[in-house]
Design a binder for these strands. Structure first.
Length: 424
DNA sequence: CCACTATAAAATGTACCTGG
DNA sequence: CCAGGTACATTTTATAGTGG
């Protein structure tokens, strides 16, 4: 190999297999080295796909994490900056190039065509009889360490070592034909201008947990002595409204803080109102003397959003269980749903709920909504009353549009409780 | 779930042999 | 020549493995 050439190892995590079908990159990593394997630069970031996140079971990335990441447009130049004039290398490279080309075409509105060297291909020439040659297996075979499989940067690092191992093996094999795998370096007719806007997995997780702790930290700083008797009702209503989508935006957080300050709540007053709110929700869930998995998960979500400790949540659940058992003889109060009649509603994403172990499909949920007098809409338009999301952080087109229009977004468990329907 | 590669298996094609 | 059998060659189809 030409010793003056540098190498760029790439790996992407994506929402699926097919960029033509609309799948997009969710994580990118590039490591550049000289021809001796000395590392020149490392690059790693999450990428907001600006669409529904799928493949989470593979790459472990959620809409919550990706929602804070830059879009591909913001990292395109950085990516190209690292690739320019280098020989691109990847495992099953055609997959990554397909996505790279599709994303670049979408951003720069012109065609891109890359080539490079594929470590999967290389392994076929070096070890023709190897039955399994996916990245994991190859790493095992060549004794290369693979940190977090399906984390772009880890996979990329592994590919670097893998390539260097295979390179020395190929060099010790005098009849090896390089012509079959050698590739031209990546040529570009412009100079990419790196912007340096990245966020990796840990940063995304830290940012999420910081956001979640904001309300709790605010409460901690409140005065401990109440200045006056306060009316809780207004605040409870605001809580109900703000928590309906099970997502606390910065604006919503500010509106809660505002009311707390304006009303002059003390620390323990806010705490007790929050616990009251949780208790009321808990009571609703215990009406049928049973707390389903979905209901319990929802209580956990709400208590986390309100900054309520886990022990307190558990205590509230226990108290309400005892109360609900004590009222066993009286009929559960029939909750009215007049407020739902003639309201338009739309669903987005695959529902999480199951019924007797079987996943509930959207048409079933729609049927339930219709039985309660609601009107189903297939898409989001200006007049829509409610959008139900399985994932509050959803980046789906419908969710983005609804947020844009200021339409009320309702989390799935809230919908089930509205229609008084029990899921697992 | 897509697109591509490599190999395996099944189907079809060709050539030749056979007896009458 | 023909019907049927055998052996091997070529083509088509199926299956599996790779990337998220």
């Amino acid at each position: 190999m030409n010793p003056s050439l540098n190498l760029a190892f790439i790996d992407f995590e994506t929402t699926g297999f097919s960029p033509r079908k609309g799948d997009r990159i969710v994580e990118a990593a590039v490591i550049t080295t000289d021809c001796n394997g000395n590392i020149l630069s490392q690059f790693e970031t999450l990428v907001n796909p600006l669409r529904e996140v799928t493949g989470t079971e593979i790459h472990q990335l959620t809409a919550e994490m990706l929602g804070q990441a830059p879009g591909f447009s913001e990292i395109a130049d950085d990516l190209l900056f690292h690739l320019k004039d280098k020989i691109i290398i990847g495992h099953n490279l055609s997959f990554d190039l397909k996505f790279l080309e599709a994303e670049l075409e979408r951003h720069y509105k012109r065609q891109f065509l890359f080539q490079g060297m594929c470590t999967l291909q290389l392994s076929k020439y070096l070890f023709p009889t190897l039955p399994v040659r996916r990245l994991e297996a190859l790493c095992e075979f060549l004794d290369v360490e693979l940190g977090n499989a399906h984390c772009a940067f880890s996979d990329c690092q592994a590919t670097v070592s893998l390539f260097s191992r295979m390179l020395s093996l190929a060099n010790g094999q005098p009849d090896f034909v390089w012509d079959r795998i050698i590739a031209e370096p990546c040529s570009l007719d412009f100079d990419p201008y790196p912007r340096g806007i990245f966020i990796n997995r840990n940063q995304a997780l830290e940012k999420s947990s910081f956001k979640k702790s904001q309300l709790r930290d605010f409460i901690k700083r409140l005065p401990s002595d109440p200045t006056k008797e306060v009316s809780e009702l207004q605040y409870l209503n605001l809580l109900d409204e703000v928590l309906a989508d099970r997502l606390l935006t910065d604006a919503e957080l500010e509106s809660l803080k505002d009311m707390i300050l304006v009303e002059g709540f003390a620390q323990n007053q806010v705490k007790s109102i929050h616990e009251d709110y949780l208790r009321k929700l808990c009571r609703i869930y215990w009406i049928d003397h049973d707390l389903s998995q979905a209901e319990y998960m929802d209580l956990k979500v709400v208590s986390e959003m309100l900054g309520i400790e886990e022990q307190i949540l558990d205590a509230i659940i226990l108290e309400e269980e005892i109360k609900s058992k004590a009222e066993q003889l009286s009929d559960p109060p029939e909750r009215g749903f007049e407020m739902l009649i003639d309201k338009t509603i739309c669903f987005t994403g695959a529902l999480n709920a199951t019924l007797n172990g079987a996943p509930i499909d959207r048409s079933f949920a729609q049927k339930i909504a219709i039985e309660h007098g609601m009107v189903i809409k297939s898409g989001v338009s200006k007049g829509l009353d409610y959008l139900v999301t399985a994932d509050p952080n959803s980046l789906s087109g419908k969710s983005l549009k609804a947020r844009d229009y200021g339409i009320k977004i309702i989390a799935e468990p809230v919908f089930w409780s509205w229609v008084n329907f029990k899921v697992d």
